[in-house]
Design a protein around this nucleic acid. Structure first.
Lengths: 258, 258
DNA sequence: CCTTTTAATTAACATTATGTTAATTGTTAA
DNA sequence: TTAACAATTAACATAATGTTAATTAAAAGG
């Protein structure tokens, strides 16, 4: 729109470079609520958002202040966006060494009023038992976990509403089509704990069904029973523990049941 | 490495911006070979690469000259990388309006000797019947289709060897787990044509088996028979044609057969 | 015109997996 | 001692798959 057609081949904007490269992270965690002792938990998938401060670190009034946003920040030339995501997560929440996955790039002209800023988006999985590490490291910014169901209603910075929708789509797909669910679980888990993780994002009848799911878990090539190891976390009856094993997961929509 | 620790908070490199933002495209096509009349084709998945010219458009000696590379180029501030991919494909090969999907970002420091250049990578699918549009629009650069099996041996520019490996992984996954195979096929196709597309990237026994696959295709929720429409493209016996329909494809590794 | 050839399709049937309901197990807690 | 309960096993009807064989309809060669 700035240039007219004749000049296109020599348009100076052809040689412009981006004004910034940022890394944003959709941090997911699952909180579980124990309704009573010796029963499986009810789990909920939550997304961590931060409230943008009124002033930035130099004391100037901040852009998109007061709105909720994904944690993130600028990438430096000495690191990848994935490394920046890891660094920023540690800086902002104190949590290190967690699972990260790239899922998209946001580069629509005008998405950031500060200029031509490209956002590389990731999702992260923080297992529930590591959540306690968080509080101590939170700096002033307000941090909150939101259930993924009622995110639409909140005022979100930049194009983060759209990024978050995609993040939820991607983690949902990955939970069903890869073994990433292991990132939400302890090393050893029961069938009902795995089931509870999956039920945070699906209503698949075959996963809801206790008998069928308990029977099926024993035949999955990427899960094995931890021989002789049981727990009473979820039941009075000592319950078999399982673990994920490395196994190639091949499947196709052309051979699956529908 | 450049900055010492004390200065970190004020390191000027924290505020450096990228030297460029490029869009690269792994263009896939399937070529099919008819061994004889009235028989299904043998298909091969091919990747289009271009040989980098000795001189750039200004006549200076080109970087990574003579090596094979993915088509692509710099993104301008007025477009997304996806739009740039579409534009560049049309400029370089004359093919417009084809299927494009983002699959990764390449931003490792040092990946491009010209500076801090971020590559946004896509794959594209050119259906076989549109290949003929190509030749006329090829500019001077050498363009060639390589079978995806023996790409390792060629000398590739920048980190394109790695990008190409990922592109093949992604298109393979998508062919099996989404309905993207339709992009390689005409609107109406036979079971053996769909099968041939899938067999370019899988050796799944259930897909190889003619009887089982022909039986299964009739029950898939995202494919329907084109009532009364038959062809003799693949057999003397007039053969049923099918089409993809829009239907949500839900599946999970926890309910699939293994 | 008759016969062979061939890909697609249907048939047949044993095997395996799933959906569903019911029974059993082992432990806690009243 | 007993009720409660999540996990597990059992039982069995139903559905899907693997496998082999038969059938179909057209082409092509004699």
């Amino acid at each position: 729109m700035k240039s007219n057609k004749k000049e296109k081949a020599y348009d100076v904007s052809r040689y412009r470079t981006p004004d910034g490269y940022t890394s944003d992270i959709a941090v997911f965690t699952i909180t579980s609520e124990k309704t009573k002792a010796y029963a499986p938990p009810k789990m909920d998938l939550k997304l961590m958002l931060i409230k943008r401060a009124e002033q930035d670190t130099e004391g100037n009034s901040n852009i998109e202040a007061g709105k909720w946003a994904l944690p993130g920040g600028f990438v430096t030339p000495e690191e990848t966006a994935m490394e920046a995501a890891s660094r920023e997560l540690e800086e902002e929440t104190g949590i290190a060494g967690i699972h990260l996955k790239h899922f998209g790039v946001y580069d629509k002209p005008g998405r950031d009023p500060r200029g031509w800023i490209i956002s590389n988006a990731h999702y992260a999985i923080v297992p529930e038992h590591r959540l306690f590490e968080r509080k101590a490291n939170d700096d002033a910014a307000e941090v909150e976990l939101f259930p993924v169901q009622n995110l639409e209603q909140h005022l979100l910075a930049f194009d983060h509403a759209s990024i978050i929708r995609h993040a939820i789509t991607h983690i949902t797909q990955d939970l069903l089509q890869t073994t990433v669910a292991k990132q939400f679980l302890p090393e050893l888990f029961t069938y009902s704990e795995l089931q509870a993780v999956l039920l945070t994002i699906t209503d698949d009848k075959a996963i809801q069904n206790e008998q069928a799911f308990a029977r099926k878990i024993k035949t999955l090539p990427f899960i094995e029973a931890a021989e002789g190891q049981k727990t009473q976390r979820t039941s009075k009856l000592p319950t078999q523990l399982y673990r994920f094993i490395d196994a190639e997961v091949k499947q196709s929509i052309y051979t699956a049941r529908h």
